[in-house]
């Protein structure tokens, strides 16, 4: 039982990171119907921005203050980069077919990855320790580290903030309107270009927060770290019902928990732990075959 609780804690830790990244995928998809394949790389950019801030600017003793500054700084940098990507790569192709926008997104992803390989080389870097990473014992013998608690605390805080922005502010209302129908929103006087840019900024900031939090938990960062985690986060977004914000969180937590449980218990039911990376896809396929629009998604009937 104790190991189960331990596995669950570890699973929800990685699941929270998936959820943070999945939010960006789902918001951008909800508004533009674009699979932003470069989003996983923004997560990597966030981790590197945090790395640079932490090593160049704050070469100090571990403190929660330094961590908050690094976190907010890298979120701001990633938001700016996300807006730049939208402005220069996605906006010119927005009116073209889905395939064109998809290839642009893949191109953007390759561009960011190999630019970072060129600048920082492919060798992994070690992320500096910004907080005291003590372990605490809970529920008998299960342990939770300070960086895990930080992941839970920060992701819950960010999700509440996001919920507030989307449902209680004017820009949030505009975002909902644009995702409902972009042309009608334009006719109602909403500056859709600004709303889209804002969505990219928020999504990228959340992904960067995920990057810094992961780097704090597992301090090895490299330019290609965003590929697999980005793909799984996208799977999480689709699993929950793409375009649906609570769905993205639910999907992320589910996939994180399922993966860790397979690694922990898979061998006893005949699934080797090497199948870890296949779990997310297997769950996705099973769910989509039963609910083609994802767990919380609404199925839009095609009209003739």
């Amino acid at each position: 039982m104790d190991t189960f609780v331990q596995q669950l804690i570890n699973g929800l830790t990685i699941g929270s990171i998936y959820a943070l990244i999945a939010l960006g995928y789902t918001m951008v998809y909800g508004i533009l119907r674009l699979i932003n394949f470069a989003h996983g790389d923004i997560y990597m950019v966030g981790a590197y921005a945090g790395f640079l801030l932490a090593t160049l600017v704050f070469n100090s003793e571990p403190s929660i203050f330094a961590f908050v500054i690094v976190l907010l700084g890298s979120m701001a940098i990633a938001a700016a980069i996300g807006m730049a990507i939208e402005r220069f790569a996605y906006r010119p192709v927005r009116k073209y077919s889905r395939m064109t926008t998809l290839i642009t997104a893949i191109g953007m992803s390759l561009f960011i990855e190999y630019l970072f390989v060129f600048i920082f080389s492919g060798t992994p870097r070690s992320f500096p320790q910004l907080i005291q990473n003590d372990n605490y014992t809970i529920f008998g013998s299960a342990t939770i580290s300070a960086s895990q608690m930080l992941i839970f605390a920060v992701s819950i805080l960010l999700m509440i903030t996001l919920q507030y922005i989307i449902f209680k502010t004017k820009i949030g209302k505009a975002m909902r309107a644009v995702s409902f129908n972009i042309n009608s929103a334009k006719l109602m006087g909403i500056n859709t270009d600004f709303v889209i840019a804002f969505t990219f900024a928020i999504g990228s900031a959340l992904a960067a927060a995920g990057g810094v939090l992961t780097a704090q938990y597992n301090p090895k960062i490299e330019p290609l770290m965003g590929i697999i985690i980005g793909l799984k986060a996208f799977v999480a977004a689709v699993l929950g019902g793409i375009g649906n914000i609570p769905g993205a969180v639910l999907g992320g937590l589910l996939i994180g928990a399922a993966e860790t449980l397979v690694v922990g218990y898979g061998n006893s039911i005949g699934i080797p732990s090497t199948y870890r990376d296949a779990v997310a896809f297997a769950i996705l396929i099973l769910v989509l075959l039963i609910r083609p629009a994802g767990l919380l998604g609404t199925n839009v009937q095609e009209k003739v």
Binding site: Y29, R33, I35, R98, L231, F234, V235, V238, I242, D277, A278, A280, F281, A282, L284, I285, L288, P292, A293
Partner: peptide
């Protein structure tokens, strides 16, 4: 559409 895309991608990875 995109759901088919992600499922084929998932099958390929599996």
């Amino acid at each position: 559409g995109d759901y088919l895309a992600i499922v084929t991608l998932g099958f390929a990875e599996i």
